[in-house]
Computed example of a mutant assay.
Amino acid sequence: MSVTLLVPSALAGFAGGRREVELDGPGGGATTVAGVLDRLADQLPALERRLRDERSAIRRHVNVYVDGTDIRDLSGPDTAVPDGATVQVIAAVSGG
């Protein structure tokens, strides 16, 4: 199974300067967003810590999309991620 994680430029330094990270895992089937982030923790723990808190919840200011759909409109961290999918991380911008 292979998934492409798109990293925002603000966090690329935590991915060795890469904006795309290929995550390979156990073969066959689908995984979940939580599973993808677990694999990310194994490969790039500093980046994963910017995306999830100490309870493994996705941080409030982080938006995650699977093949262009916001996981908040799906099943959150339990959203299925099929083989070959693209998972995009976008850091929310706020201000006033």
Rank of each mutant, 00 (worst) to 15 (best):
M1C: 12
S2D: 15
V3S: 02
L5A: 07
L6Y: 07
V7R: 03
V7A: 05
V7S: 01
S9I: 11
A10I: 10
F14I: 04
A15I: 15
A15S: 08
G16V: 00
G17H: 13
G17D: 09
G17P: 07
R18H: 13
R18P: 06
R18E: 02
R18D: 04
V21P: 00
E22A: 14
E22R: 15
D24L: 12
G25W: 03
G25I: 14
G25C: 12
G25H: 12
P26C: 07
P26Q: 10
G28L: 15
G28R: 15
G28C: 14
G28V: 12
G29Q: 04
G29N: 07
T31W: 02
T31M: 07
T32C: 06
A34L: 04
G35M: 05
G35R: 03
V36G: 01
D38Q: 05
D38F: 08
D38L: 14
R39T: 12
L40G: 08
A41H: 13
D42P: 00
D42K: 11
D42Y: 02
D42G: 15
Q43V: 13
L44G: 00
P45K: 14
P45G: 09
A46Q: 14
L47W: 00
E48G: 11
R49F: 13
R49M: 10
R49G: 08
R50N: 10
L51I: 13
L51K: 01
L51Y: 02
R52K: 14
D53L: 08
E54A: 13
E54S: 11
R55I: 04
R55G: 06
R55L: 08
S56V: 04
S56L: 11
A57N: 06
A57S: 06
A57G: 07
I58D: 00
I58S: 00
R60W: 11
H61P: 05
V62A: 06
V62L: 12
V62C: 10
N63A: 15
N63D: 08
N63F: 08
V64I: 04
G68Q: 09
G68D: 07
D70P: 05
I71T: 02
I71P: 05
I71R: 02
R72T: 07
R72K: 13
D73A: 14
D73W: 03
L74H: 05
S75E: 14
G76P: 04
P77E: 08
P77D: 05
D78I: 02
T79R: 05
T79A: 02
A80W: 00
V81I: 02
G84Y: 15
G84K: 12
G84V: 05
G84Q: 13
A85K: 04
A85E: 08
T86H: 10
V87E: 06
Q88E: 05
V89I: 14
V89F: 15
I90A: 11
I90C: 10
I90S: 03
I90H: 07
A91H: 06
A92Q: 10
S94M: 13
S94P: 11
S94V: 09
G96T: 13
G96Y: 14
